[in-house]
């Protein structure tokens, strides 16, 4: 991801009020982490598994934080149980920032990622989780705000799947 796009993404999250982010680092979107780390608006929680990334974000949301969990696409499969038994069962508003590895627009797609990528949408739909695919920086702030408004309205997790320009 180009540095300019990373800044745009982080500014969009801040403008939408996201102030608590759990994460397990991955390749494609990782430039957002140093930007968030240097801005005290964000409280960051590094985790050892996306599973706890979701549960920790849920706990923070119950304490009044506006939360996001940043993960690679494969992390959705790691955290399926937590998404279902905590985020969805309890109705927790949470933004999932997912690097959509293995998608058609993933500029680094290969045999390593593609089979996981093709199961992403079916699994999100099986879990009943709303999602949007974001391929470029156009209207990014608006799209993040829309997703955050949706998660608060639903009181459920909402997913932004980042591919295309974000995977350069």
């Amino acid at each position: 991801m180009e540095p300019e796009l990373a800044s745009k993404l982080v500014n969009g999250l801040k403008a939408a009020g996201i102030n608590f982010v759990t994460y397990l680092p991955e390749t494609r979107l990782s430039q957002i982490l140093p930007l968030m780390r240097q801005d005290e608006f964000f409280q960051l929680a590094p985790v050892a598994s996306e599973a706890e990334g979701v549960s920790i974000a849920a706990g923070a949301a119950l304490g009044g934080k506006q939360v996001a969990s940043y993960m690679e696409g494969t992390g959705v499969f790691v955290s399926t149980y937590n998404l279902l038994t905590i985020a969805e069962r309890f109705g927790i508003p949470m933004l999932l920032l997912v690097s959509y590895v293995g998608s058609a627009a993933d500029k680094r797609n290969s045999f390593l990622y593609v089979r996981r990528g093709t199961r992403m949408i079916p699994v999100l739909e099986a879990l009943g989780i709303e999602y949007q695919i974001v391929t470029d920086g156009e209207n990014l702030e608006t799209r993040i705000k829309d997703a955050v408004r949706m998660m608060h309205a639903l009181k459920l997790p909402v997913v932004l799947l980042f591919t295309g320009e974000f995977t350069v």
């Binding site: 494969t74 499969f77 279902l84 089979r115 996981r116 699994v123």
Partner: peptide, 17 residues
């Protein structure tokens, strides 16, 4: 049954793949 959601990653990346 809840275990299915715990092991989705392992099913996908090992058994299925």
């Amino acid at each position: 049954g809840t275990g299915l959601f715990v092991c989705s990653y392992n099913l996908l990346t090992v058994s299925i793949r």
